[in-house]
Design a protein around this nucleic acid. Sequence first.
DNA 1: TTGACATAATACCAAAAGGTTTCGTATAAA
DNA 2: TTTATACGAAACCTTTTGGTATTATGTCAA
Lengths: 107, 107
Amino acid sequence: MMEHHADQLIFRAIADPTRRAIIDMLSSGDRSIGDIAAGFDMTRPAVAKHLAILKDGRLIDVEKRGRERIHRLRPDTLKSAASWINQFDRFWDDRLAKLKEVVEEKQ
Amino acid sequence: MMEHHADQLIFRAIADPTRRAIIDMLSSGDRSIGDIAAGFDMTRPAVAKHLAILKDGRLIDVEKRGRERIHRLRPDTLKSAASWINQFDRFWDDRLAKLKEVVEEKQ
DNA sequence: TTGACATAATACCAAAAGGTTTCGTATAAA
DNA sequence: TTTATACGAAACCTTTTGGTATTATGTCAA
């Protein structure tokens, strides 16, 4: 089951809780680095690093507007991660069905 | 949007490509550490550490059987990660619909 | 009982991650 | 034109991560 390099960048991007919080924040509207940093107890360069990693994972796009950089969540990329996770749906169903059988037997 | 510590352990567990490969491997059957290590170019202690992290994230269960430890994928835990990702479904749909509008306007 | 085997536990190492401070540059505003 | 602002980039520090090698322990098998 060979995996693409791009997938690894996505998983790396969502591995950090700060970056997931940034994703949550951007889902309610586009923001500059300063706006985002204001929501965290962290310096701007630190936030900028997180944003660079999110950009590497193609989870956000950046648009230069005047002296600001507006960060916008991409509407598609997270689906790659979702699809890996969802391949276990059949596994879950099978296992939970077996568990149900065992439980019902014991009654 | 406060997040549970347990969630962080799950994301940490799936962040590493070796651990995702182990998850894939275990989805086709339970295995001992030695079995798993045979599938990787890596020493047994290294694999054992990955398994410990997967266990912390409650993605696998371990059963002591004789002198072996059998590792079994849990059928439920990955759903927490899936649910975080899936909360963006509405966002994707909205954005893609808007993109479609823009594209059609330009034609 | 003795030897082989599966794993645990520990110590150790290099590289990556996550943060800071400092300084430089481009743009906006006075 | 001068000043303030938003950001980039680099240097640096500390902790975590992912790996190794080594040694110890418990269990099976001859």
